[in-house]
Design a protein around this nucleic acid. Structure first.
Length: 733
DNA sequence: GCCGGGTGGGTTTTT
DNA sequence: CCCACCCGGC
């Protein structure tokens, strides 16, 4: 097979590069995946053993897709393609003993980790208003993902001895994790790195085993991830990184595009290739996507271009509220199909998961089938987590969090006090909780009643182990269900108040386990690993529209993309301004969303949106102003519809926030209801604004105190915004 | 110890 | 709105 045929010059350079460091800066849609898969195939064609090649991707979806493409290119010789977390789990399953750890560990997802944090906060008698478990979990994660010279400091609330308490908390967290024979997402990485750093034999073994490492989406790697691949390739130097700084959208979880700079510093002789030709989108789409990026600080300009022609203009459509938006979006799916778009080539994207609900309702009303990528998780549901808790305990009896979770589920008379004294006893004796239970070593302070309940539980666990200790996931789940009566317990409880039927989820979990066991011969431990490390479960489906967040859309492409909720406080998200560079990341996010579209791109805006159950006024995203007017087409009412009272309510805080840091736009601080002053006409109240986001000169209609109504061009009118607090903010138009 | 109802706050984004 | 948490009655 000719592996460089049909590739452009830069792509060929990257594909035929055989050894030594390589850096590929690949703009959106520039054929990056193609380059990686062809390069892997090319290495194999030149005699590199497939299992000596490791390709690290960002999502499991990407890993799977690349694996398939490599298979095709090499007629069945597959390299190892995995996510960082997946690879580390595999590495530790083999080598963890070098760290003094067991290889039959379980993996804690973020919510398991949060549970652990909560239980430590309780044990340490910390005030959880001050030491918020959520903030502590976040802090732990940030800290372990940070560069050594940029260790974060606690920015949460403070209390006397806060520093000591937090330090003690960190130590306890790490210890408890190890005692439970568990790794959380972060420690999978950091412990792998620590192992390679401290165990020369292990390092040597893997350096020999993996001669070529390729990293995809390098802009979204964090410090330990870069360390990991650097260690693995320290001898071979065959490290290839590909990515695009313009698509860096994960800095909030430690990703650091400065890894590109480090790579150049660490490998000064590296070959660097830039892919700028776009094979995906039409030029109108690309121009809009580039326009959004123009003001991003410290950016190396990269002009994407395409030979696919201008294509359709990007549509910007405004609706009065989110209901209108949702039904129009659902209607648009039908309309697009009429235009010849395949349903599985239409994606509806949103900044936050919450926006999918109204859309889903509208789709359901019309009987349009859809799938949600990621989303509020099946594996996060209580009933699913409970049952997996039992399975985890079977796979790893040391898993204290799993044990505590199911200790009284279904309820069996073991309350919090009993659980607590049991856990305390275990800690004091330095024995695992499971051991105490197996030995029926109840603290003598417990009542007879509690001890009876515990005896029952211990017997249940014994029976469960007998029946299911080395069973596959489905058989184990069957045993759990029949021995605990879990499903019956659920159906006995009042069924109202639960939006999604727990029994159905239980059935689905069982079906899932059965398929894993029967079709893929997955053992229990692997099954559990998949449920925590793998997020998607459905494959693509011709019959379905795809709903997904912009974050999970990374690396994907669709003929038509509808991005909903393109409003201030959503894109950019209200919280984005809290972190430095947050607004620029929001721009990159919008850029990523737009560049997913091949032929048709629609951005929708609602004037009112239900948030937290209350309807609130919304303004079009400030980013929309940057779109070139010759590449867009606007529909719908241009002036936002306001409920005047609500406007008054929210005005104060809005102005304060707006004036805080953002140079982005004075124009946005003027909206209907804003009080302004004009040097000639005096004070007035803005009633209407037109054209502000369309690359036109915005005009503003003001009712002045002398009862005159005037429409002025914002740019030329010498208007001054009058703040709530009567301070006068000078706004220079 | 169990459960259901009330209350208050809000976690953007994901491996 | 949806949840996590608290409280009071059983």
């Amino acid at each position: 097979m000719n592996l460089v045929g049909g590739l452009n010059k830069e792509q060929q350079t990257a594909v035929s590069h055989r050894s030594g460091p390589l850096c590929v800066i690949a703009g959106a849609g520039s054929g990056k995946t193609r380059v990686i898969t062809h390069r892997i195939a090319n290495l194999i064609a030149h005699g590199v053993p497939p299992d000596a090649i490791l390709g690290v991707t960002f999502t499991n979806r990407a890993a799977k897709e690349m694996q398939e493409r490599v298979w095709v290119l090499t007629s069945g010789a597959g390299a190892t393609l995995a996510t960082f977390h997946g690879f580390c789990a595999r590495l530790l399953r083999i080598e963890a003993e070098a760290l003094g750890r067991r290889t039959d560990f379980t993996i804690y997802d973020s919510s398991d980790a949060l549970d652990l944090v909560k239980s430590i906060v309780k044990d340490m008698n910390l005030d959880d208003d001050l030491a918020s478990p959520w903030a502590l979990a976040e802090f732990m994660s940030t800290k372990r993902n940070a560069r050594p010279d940029e260790v974060p400091v606690w920015e949460g609330k403070r209390w006397p001895n806060a520093d000591q308490d937090i330090a003690a908390f960190e130590k306890t967290y790490i210890r408890r994790l190890a005692e439970s024979n568990a790794f959380d997402f972060d420690s999978l990485l950091t412990e792998s790195v620590r192992m390679l750093e401290t165990c020369p034999q292990v390092l040597a073994r893997w350096q020999e085993r993996l001669t070529h490492v390729l990293v995809d989406e390098f802009q979204d790697t964090n410090y330990p991830q870069y360390q990991l691949v650097k260690l693995l390739t320290a001898k071979s130097k065959n490290l290839c990184v590909t990515g695009d700084p313009d698509q860096s959208i994960y800095t909030w979880r430690g990703a650091d595009p400065r890894n590109f700079d480090d790579f150049r510093r660490d490998y000064p002789s590296a070959v660097e290739v830039v892919l700028a030709q776009n094979y995906r989108s039409t030029n109108h789409i690309l121009h809009c996507a580039s326009a959004v990026m123009r003001t991003v600080a410290g950016r190396v300009p990269k002009n994407l271009w395409s030979e696919l022609g201008d294509g359709e203009p990007v549509r910007i459509v405004r609706f009065t509220d989110d209901r209108d938006e949702a039904s129009a979006v659902a209607q648009a799916v039908l309309e697009f199909e009429g235009d010849g778009f395949r349903r599985d080539q239409i994606a509806i994207m949103f900044r936050v998961n919450a926006l999918s609900l109204p859309i889903e309702r509208a789709l359901l009303e019309r009987g349009l089938r859809y799938r949600v990528l990621g989303g509020p998780e099946f594996f996060g549901r209580q009933e699913v987590k409970d049952l997996l808790g039992y399975l985890r305990l079977l796979a790893n009896p040391l898993d204290a969090q799993a044990l505590l979770r199911i200790l009284n589920v279904p309820t069996r008379g073991i309350g919090d006090r009993t659980a607590e004294s049991l856990a305390t006893a275990a800690r004091q004796q330095g024995r695992p909780l499971a051991e105490l239970i197996a030995a029926r070593a109840w603290p003598s302070t417990l009542t007879k009643r509690a001890q009876n309940s515990l005896n029952g539980f211990a017997a249940l666990l014994d029976k469960l182990c007998d029946e299911a200790e080395s069973a596959g996931p489905a058989a184990a789940l069957d045993a759990v269900l029949s021995l605990t009566g879990y499903a019956e317990w659920w159906s006995g409880r009042s069924s109202r108040g639960h939006s999604q039927d727990p029994l159905r989820n239980i059935g689905q979990l069982l079906a899932f386990a059965r398929e894993a066991e029967d079709a893929h011969k997955t053992d229990l431990r692997t099954f559990l690993e998949q449920t925590t490390l793998l997020t998607e479960r459905e494959g693509s489906d011709q019959e379905k529209v795809t709903l997904l967040t912009v974050h999970s859309a990374k690396g994907l492409e669709y003929d038509a993309v509808i991005l909903v909720g393109v409003e201030d406080d959503l894109i950019p998200h209200a919280n984005a301004r809290l972190s430095p560079g947050g607004l620029d990341e929001e721009r990159r996010l919008l850029h990523v969303a737009m560049t997913r579209a091949r032929k048709r791109l629609v951005l929708t805006v609602a004037g009112r949106r239900v948030r937290f159950g209350r309807e609130q006024a919304a303004l079009p995203s400030r980013f929309l102003r940057d779109l070139p007017s010759d590449a867009i087409e606007s529909y719908g009412d241009d002036s936002p519809t306001y409920d005047f009272q609500e406007e008054e309510e929210s005005k104060g805080s809005r102005l304060v926030r707006e004036s805080s840091d953002d140079m982005d736009d004075p124009v946005l601080s003027v909206k209907p209801g804003t009080r302004v002053r004009h040097p000639d006409y005096g004070q007035g109240l803005v009633s209407r604004i037109r054209g502000r986001h369309l690359g036109l000169d915005a005009s503003v209609t003001v009712n002045f105190a002398d009862d005159s109504e005037r429409t002025l061009i914002l740019r030329y009118a010498k208007l001054t915004v009058i703040d709530e607090s009567d301070h006068i903010a000078e706004v220079d138009f």
